[in-house]
Design a binder for these strands. Structure first.
Lengths: 196, 196
DNA sequence: TCTACTTTCTACCACTTGGTAGGCAATGCT
DNA sequence: AGCATTGCCTACCAAGTGGTAGAAAGTAGA
């Protein structure tokens, strides 16, 4: 693998797990077995490295979600597949979601740039939810605010690993599946209108 | 106000908004118009200051929640009052919830200590949900996992202010009320069983 | 007034931070 | 061969980090 890619991967993990301020270029370089100046050769500043990491993370997430749209039917089925894929992502690459959360805490200017890549996803989800509501397949409500709620639940369930571990919730694959199922039941009750 | 309290307040805000690593004792002291060594007199290390901040934040949250329990009827009413109070807290002192999120990202040892104060709240909520389910007032499911989901939604809705601002969601008091209402509708659909 | 104690300060310190300047080997093009 | 470019390096720097030592200033009781 190319050095610049190795740097980007390590940086994404470090930023996502330890935060921007909690990550130093020196320790990052040490992990990679190179010098800090090699990092600064490929990415001129620490912030440029962060931007690249964030861009990559958003790209991965966008791909996962658009795959979910492609592979799914309409209605509830689509939400279920999305949650499954996001959960799988949260297990395989937890640093990605952690990084996105970190970005939203950092605020501008990084957040402002990140939103440019993220906004289409939100728009798409909002439009889709609206049309599903028109079809009566999703409970009527403000789609924009609903997206935020759903985003919060999924993000929370997927990223609060540290917290869960600390309060003694097991983290075996089986437990994660259970938690995903519980989340789906929760979302399902919240979203699906009562048949009438 | 006593200096040690002023330090604690400023530290809670700084840690909650900029994170632990993003907060330096020097800038903190400058904000307060004192020297860094005065901080280190009242709190021997930076980590001790963090622990004190976290302890204070948990105490406030615990008070708010137990007030909510005292002031509320059973069933849905109680959840609604809790959400209201947590939202008010999120508006008046957003740094508190931000700090709790930061702690869960930092992991041990701070998280481990924090959980000691936090666990009773979770236990209480879990037990209460269980009994509500027995009464048929809350939809049947794993109460432990349900607490986590509800925690995630509230925490997300209450702390993603930065994100919302960046994607252009207004943050006027009226908008916050709207968002709280939407969240309550969301939770209500998710939790309340269908009458039969 | 003397004394003991609390609080805040100045002066430092070793270490880490992100970043600059420039050398040096490898690679590939002419 | 000669030469430019790429990629990684050593050497260094100014600024900032958390923390120590100990002096100075206030405060209260005898």
């Amino acid at each position: 693998m190319k050095t610049s890619e190795r740097i980007l991967n390590a940086a994404t993990i470090a930023f996502g797990e330890n935060g921007y301020d909690g990550t130093s270029l020196d320790t990052l370089a040490k992990e990679l077995g190179i010098r800090k100046q090699s990092i600064l050769y490929h990415y001129p500043t620490k912030e440029a490295l962060l931007d690249a990491s964030v861009f990559g993370a958003i790209e991965v997430l966008a791909t996962v979600l658009s795959d979910a749209v492609r592979d799914s039917e309409e209605g509830w089925d689509r939400i279920e597949i999305m949650v499954r894929k996001v959960f799988r992502l949260a297990i395989q690459r937890p640093e990605l979601l952690g990084l996105l959360r970190e970005v939203s805490r950092l605020g501008p200017p990084t957040l402002t740039k990140a939103i440019k890549g993220f906004d289409p996803l939100i728009q798409g989800a909002t439009d889709w939810l609206k049309s599903e509501m028109d079809f009566g397949r999703i409970r009527e409500s403000d789609p924009y605010l609903l997206v935020i709620s759903v985003y919060s639940v999924i993000m929370g369930a997927a990223t609060e690993g540290n917290l869960l571990e600390a309060i003694g919730v097991q983290q075996t694959p089986r437990d994660v599946v259970l938690r995903r199922k519980e989340l789906l039941r929760f979302l399902r009750s919240a979203l699906i209108p009562v048949a009438n």
